[in-house]
Simulated scan of single mutants.
Amino acid sequence: METSRSPQIVGIGGVSNGGKTTLCLSLVEKLRQAGVNVEMLQQDEFFKEVEDIPWHKSGVFRICDDKVAIDMAKMMEAVRSRVAKMQKTNSAQSAPVLLIEGFLIFNYECLNAMFSRRYFFTLPKDIAWERRLSREYRTPEPAAMFPKHVWPMYLIHYDELKKANVDMVELNGTDGPNTILERVFREVLPSVLR
């Protein structure tokens, strides 16, 4: 009789517009093609209601790139629920994989402790800014949001991880998406095969 295996939980974190979602979506597809049961959770699904997110001290925008903007209790509940569901799903070839993507996923100890692998995107400020300008957001952002909040918070959260010696593989977001995908796929697949 086949026994269930706990999912491998892989975190994809890092800078805003670094390539996290692109990598996750491509990795889901590639792992499924390899016969792996894989699911994905995005931290963006757990933002608090806009009116519950505090205003930046400038009064011009809300501080969405900070821990106070995320409903971590709700996210942890979703992670535990997904893990329990995936443990019931067996595959003859591999352990299930849960990909969790978000800009602050490694900054929460309770969530960070669950990861078997951690990948963290970095980008130079000018490229992050350029990419941010090319994206369309549901709620348009004031121009001051990136230089006054998004980038400084990224640096603060990144520094927290470095000081805590979080074991993570850094990915250069300027590398091509296929190069990054192939690297991560080659590292993740062997760890989940039976």
Rank of each mutant, 00 (worst) to 15 (best):
T174R: 04
L23K: 08
V50D: 14
S81H: 07
N112R: 13
H56K: 01
V79G: 11
G18I: 03
T89Y: 03
F120N: 02
V36D: 08
I105S: 04
A164K: 15
F103V: 11
Y119R: 04
V60E: 13
T22W: 02
D71E: 10
Q87L: 00
L181Q: 05
P7D: 08
I63Y: 02
F185C: 03
E29I: 05
Y154K: 12
V60H: 00
V60A: 09
F121I: 05
K30H: 04
E2N: 13
M40R: 10
P96A: 15
E136V: 11
Y158T: 05
P190A: 08
P147V: 12
I12F: 10
W129C: 00
F115Y: 11
E77M: 07
R194S: 05
M75D: 06
E136Y: 00
I100T: 00
E51A: 13
Q87F: 01
A92Q: 02
R131Y: 03
L25V: 10
V68P: 01
M168G: 03
T179F: 01
S116H: 03
V192P: 03
E136I: 13
R5Q: 09
T174Y: 02
M76P: 02
N17A: 11
E2C: 14
P152H: 13
E51Q: 15
G13A: 15
W151E: 01
V166R: 14
I53C: 10
I180A: 00
I180L: 11
M75P: 10
V28W: 09
K30F: 00
M1Q: 01
T139G: 06
N17R: 15
K57I: 12
V60C: 01
I12T: 02
K20L: 09
M40N: 09
F47P: 10
L133E: 02
R118Q: 06
E29P: 01
W55C: 09
N17M: 10
S191A: 06
E187N: 03
M86T: 00
V188G: 00
D126N: 05
V36L: 05
M145E: 11
K163Q: 15
E160I: 14
S134A: 07
Q42G: 13
H149N: 11
R82D: 05
I100R: 04
C24H: 06
S6T: 09
